[in-house]
Structures are given as structure tokens and as C-alpha cells.
């Protein structure tokens, strides 16, 4: 019974996700037509416009076919891993992305982990010491973090810890796991600073609300240990914290664009900036689709997280 419920729940969410991705893929394909100038022009990019190249592009992209057929052909290519050819480098876009994706994922994962490990405990401390000095300090730090833009934090970190103190490298990705982690630390911190503020806010507010609930008083009154009582409240704060985590990870995916440029890291963000600068539409299209997919995937994961954290979501029960 419970297993079937969960299966149904996941199926529903997954179907919804597929619909969203399908709609967004239409938008991404439309980019080709929304870009200023003719489609041939866009696909030619900076190459010389000879008759042969134009004919080759016509044939390559089937531009004489009706629009829906072109879209389906493009979509078919995308589904088979053919994301087109970069106008700028002439390489397949899929290969370019493949080289850079691991770095960006590692950067976002590292940043999110840092933010989680710092932000949630700080929020918990703030909630448990509500109104006291520790709480005020945590809240103030959160606001400072939230209001600092990642690229500015990045520059500051570079100046202090890389150029000034020399503890971390100024640019580059490093070799080997430990070295890579060392290279990624400053960029990840730059990404995490704002996220820490978000985590502090969400987890503190959620925990404060839960600590005021009757079930917490009841748990104390019947002699549960302090740790068990905080465990009760934390478990119930999980849904808002998950919401925050989803927002933070998607925000970080966008934040990589600036941070990768600041730290000169060869990730998707810097690829996106280069591609946009060179009007490399196939690459922009593919990157746009990829970011969309990543964001949709994060949201799906958060939805699944809700169902794990809260049985009422899973069983469709009413939260009375």
C-alpha cells in the first residue's frame, strides 16, 4: 500500500517534469529564431558567407523543412547527444560541455555542501539561543552574507587569501582530487556566502516555529531528553530547509557564471559567457537546455525530498 502510494507519487512528479522540460525545449529551440538576423546568418556566425557555406548550412540544418519538423529533428539530435556544432570553435557542442560539466557540478556541489554545513548549524544555534547575543550575531552574519554579491566576495577572497596571504591559488583547476579541492575552495566559498545567509534564515525561522509547537512542550513534559526534543523539532523543520536548499542550488547554478569568470575556471559558466559574447547560438541553446534540465532536476529532487521528509505529502493526507 505504502509502496504503491510512493510509486504513484513519483510517477506523477516525473510526468510533470517531462512536460516542463518539453515546453522549455521549444523555448530553447526558438532562440535560434529569436536571435537578430537571419537563421543562416546566426548559424554562420563569424565565418565568411560564401554560397557554399550557406548551402551547406541549409542542408545541415534542413532549413527548407517546415518549422515543427526542424524542431523535431533538433530534438531528435539532442536526444541522441547531438547538440550541434559550435560556431565559435567548430567542435561538437556536446564535447565542449562534456569537458566542462564536471567542474561546474563539483563547484556547485562543494559550495552547497559548505553552505549547508555552516548555514544550518548556525540557524539551529540562533533558534535555540533565540533573542540572545549568539542569535543576534548569527542573524546579522546571515544578512551580511545575503547582501554580498558572489563576484564581489570572489574578488575580495582573491585579494585577501590568494594574492595577500597566498593560502590559495589565484586561478586554475589543479591536478588530483586534493589539489582540485584546494583550487575550488575559494570559488566555492564565494558561492556559499550568500547561501549561508539563506540557510540561516530558513532553518532558524523554521526551527523557532517548531519549538513553539505543542508537541515539543508535550515531549518535554513527558521526560524526553533535550536531544530527542530538538530532534523532533528539527525533523519537522526539514521541509522549509529543503525548500531553501532547492532555491540555493538553482541560484548557485546561475551564480557560477560570475564566479567562474572571476576565478578564470573553465566551467559551464565561463563557456556560457564566451558563447554569448561570440553569438555562438548552438552552444547557447545547448547550455540553456542543460541549465534548464539541471534546475528541473533539482526541483524534482526537492519534491522527492519532501515526500521522504513528510509522510503527509506521500500519502496525500491533509495537514490538519
Amino acid at each position: 500500500m505504502a509502496g504503491r502510494d510512493r510509486g504513484l507519487f513519483l510517477l506523477r512528479r516525473f510526468a510533470g517534469t517531462v512536460v516542463v522540460v518539453a515546453l522549455l525545449s521549444v523555448g530553447m529551440f526558438g532562440l535560434l529564431y529569436l536571435a537578430p538576423g537571419s537563421v543562416q546568418q546566426t548559424l554562420l556566425g563569424t565565418r565568411p558567407a560564401t554560397l557554399e557555406t550557406i548551402a551547406a548550412i541549409q542542408a545541415r540544418y534542413h532549413l527548407d523543412e517546415p518549422l515543427p519538423a526542424q524542431y523535431l529533428r533538433w530534438l531528435g539530435g539532442v536526444l541522441h547527444g547531438d547538440l550541434g556544432t559550435s560556431v565559435r570553435t567548430g567542435m561538437p557542442v556536446a564535447d565542449m560541455i562534456g569537458q566542462r560539466l564536471p567542474l561546474t557540478l563539483a563547484l556547485v556541489g562543494y559550495g552547497a555542501l559548505l553552505a549547508l554545513l555552516v548555514g544550518v548549524p548556525l540557524g539551529v544555534v540562533g533558534a535555540l539561543r533565540r533573542g540572545r547575543a549568539a542569535d543576534r550575531l548569527v542573524v546579522t552574519a546571515g544578512v551580511v552574507g545575503l547582501s554580498a554579491p558572489p563576484f564581489a566576495v570572489g574578488l575580495l577572497l582573491l585579494v585577501v587569501f590568494a594574492a595577500g596571504l597566498g593560502w590559495f591559488p589565484v586561478y586554475g583547476t589543479g591536478e588530483g582530487l586534493a589539489d582540485q579541492a584546494w583550487h575550488l575552495t575559494l570559488p566555492a566559498v564565494a558561492l556559499a556566502v550568500g547561501a549561508v545567509g539563506m540557510f540561516v534564515r530558513f532553518s532558524r525561522a523554521a526551527l523557532i516555529r517548531e519549538l513553539d509547537q505543542d508537541y515539543v512542550v508535550f515531549a518535554r513534559a513527558r521526560g524526553l531528553s533535550g536531544a530527542a526534543v530538538i530532534g523532533y523539532a528539527l525533523r519537522n523543520s526539514l521541509v522549509p530547509i529543503l525548500t531553501a536548499a532547492g532555491l540555493i542550488v538553482t541560484g548557485m547554478l546561475a551564480g557560477t557564471v560570475l564566479v567562474e569568470v572571476t576565478f578564470a575556471l573553465p566551467g559551464l559558466g565561463s563557456l556560457l559567457v564566451d558563447s554569448v559574447t561570440f553569438k555562438d547560438v548552438p552552444a547557447v541553446q545547448a547550455l540553456g537546455l542543460l541549465f534548464t534540465l539541471l534546475i528541473v532536476a533539482v526541483n524534482l529532487l526537492v519534491d522527492i525530498g519532501y515526500s521522504v521528509a513528510d509522510p503527509r505529502v506521500r500519502f496525500g493526507g491533509r495537514t490538519s
Binding site: 505543542d214 508537541y215 521526560g223 524526553l224 525533523r235 521528509a309
Partner: peptide
């Protein structure tokens, strides 16, 4: 718990929902 225990008013809020 062991010596004195309290039962509260609202059955809809006194239990940990999760």
C-alpha cells in the same frame, strides 16, 4: 515522565506529525 507527566489539550497538535 517517570514521576509527573502532562497530557495536553489539542490532540491535533500534541503529537509529532512526522
Amino acid at each position: 515522565g517517570g514521576v509527573v507527566s502532562l497530557l495536553m489539550q489539542d490532540p491535533f497538535t500534541l503529537l509529532n506529525p512526522l
